[in-house]
Design a protein around this nucleic acid. Structure first.
Lengths: 247, 247
DNA sequence: CGCGGGTTTGAGCCTACTCAACAGATGTGG
DNA sequence: CCACATCTGTTGAGTAGGCTCAAACCCGCG
């Protein structure tokens, strides 16, 4: 079961039956990985065409920065996620992606990907489906940020991080690692680090979470889910419409 | 020049050379259109598999709604846009899409799309590129909403609507139609209608915009662009990495 | 031991919200 | 063609949620 060592394969297989040929192709994509230190850029600016990466291990975040120096974390990448999928249409990376912890990534250049997709059309459908997951989660986050109170935003965020952590293991529990400082959480939610701190204190002092950095435990997940109207977009990817593999 | 009647084709050809075969395929996708009245759903719930639509004319918006009844406009669709591209991975539509003006749409079901993509792999690359445009614009909006003042948010929004309007015409000007009430604008920006109103009044009384509903004219676009750090993501789609069409 | 990154707490303030009322426009049914 | 309802825009007054500024504290690390 060599393929189980790869979070990316694990995720793909969770959603769709792969042929042995396809499995070989995806495995080849992950053959060479390079390690990356915390805070270093995921994509190598010197390799202009290597603009896609599969996260092998570690976390990364994508940030948008404004003139005033304020920044927003627009995406959080965990093992098995694909970095740069949403940037395919751009000649220059629109937002920059940095490692959030130490880790390793597999770089893929776009022409290789394009060629692979040409030979194996189902690859595109799968990638597009995965991109669509990202985007829907992003739209959910947009909604929570614009319309929920700071406390509910934080709760929604913790729930979504828990969902994503659950994808990476077969024994999900309500305890999971959150490799982000309170300032980072603020950058993801549009709050100040100070206010995030007050909220976290409040949640833990009222017994809603247990914090033991970097781990966090959600005490009443169902209650929270109902309270903020959380929907787990990651759990069910529908790939039934994709044409079955040729032969 | 029959193809010029289609905003969708116009947009595709702006970004990539199409072969005659490909052109025929895309034209066929748009063959049958159905008209839709303002405020009616774009996708027909009775046709469960028809989950993609190309906007033929009119505007549509996608909304996320929360338990409290608050809603956020997560996407705005104009002629030539593809509705439902980002929802491909879901068995049920995650957010609902309604017409914002009267108009017409072409419904496409997912299996048809999948089959087409199987026969013409470049289709997927193009769709993924277009989806990536959407997503990057969405991330920009997320950033402006989380980190900019209400006034700058509104300015950023008007600039982005202008960019999109510009895609639909060959003679772009700083005057363009905005088919949204102040409440809708608020739903897109995370503001109340009342506050949007105050801001609009301020912008027009200080000579920054001219309003003649539904048209709006930006007076100093360069100044605004610099002020809020606006980047026009729609102007340049990079498709150079896509493998050229077979034969 | 000093330093830097992250966390914690206090005090005061401002941006954008709420509530309320009205004017204009638009539409709709009789 | 009018009467009425509904939607949209406008303005005022008061409020509060999350911000800013400031200062400690904790901990790992060189």
């Amino acid at each position: 079961m060599k393929s189980l060592t790869s979070a990316f394969m694990l995720r793909l297989e969770r959603h769709a039956e792969l042929t042995t040929t396809e499995r070989e192709i995806f495995e080849r994509l992950e053959k060479d990985s390079v390690s990356r230190k915390k805070r270093s850029p995921v994509l190598d600016p010197s390799r202009a065409d290597a603009r896609i990466a599969i996260m092998k291990s570690g976390w990364a975040v994508s940030r948008a920065t404004s003139v005033s120096g304020q920044s927003t974390i627009t995406q959080i990448f965990m093992p098995g996620d694909i970095v740069g999928l949403a940037d395919l249409g751009f000649s220059l990376p629109p937002h920059d992606v940095q490692m959030q912890t130490d880790g390793a990534v597999c770089l893929i250049d776009r022409r290789t990907l394009s060629q692979l997709g040409h030979d194996h059309p189902r690859l595109w459908s799968l990638l597009l489906s995965m991109a669509s997951l990202e985007e829907v989660a992003l739209r959910d986050r947009l909604h929570t940020i614009t319309r929920l109170s700071a406390e509910d935003r934080l709760i929604h965020f913790i729930l979504s991080m828990k969902s994503r952590a659950a994808q990476l293991t077969d024994q999900p529990s309500d305890r999971f690692p959150l490799h982000m400082s309170q300032k980072d959480i603020g950058d993801a939610l549009g709050l100040t680090d100070i206010y995030v701190n007050r909220l976290m204190r409040k949640l833990s002092s009222t017994g809603q979470i247990d914090v033991a950095r970097p781990y966090i435990r959600i005490i009443d997940r169902d209650g929270w889910t109902k309270r903020v109207g959380y929907k787990d977009r990651y759990a069910n990817l529908d790939t039934s419409w994709i044409a079955s593999a040729a032969s």
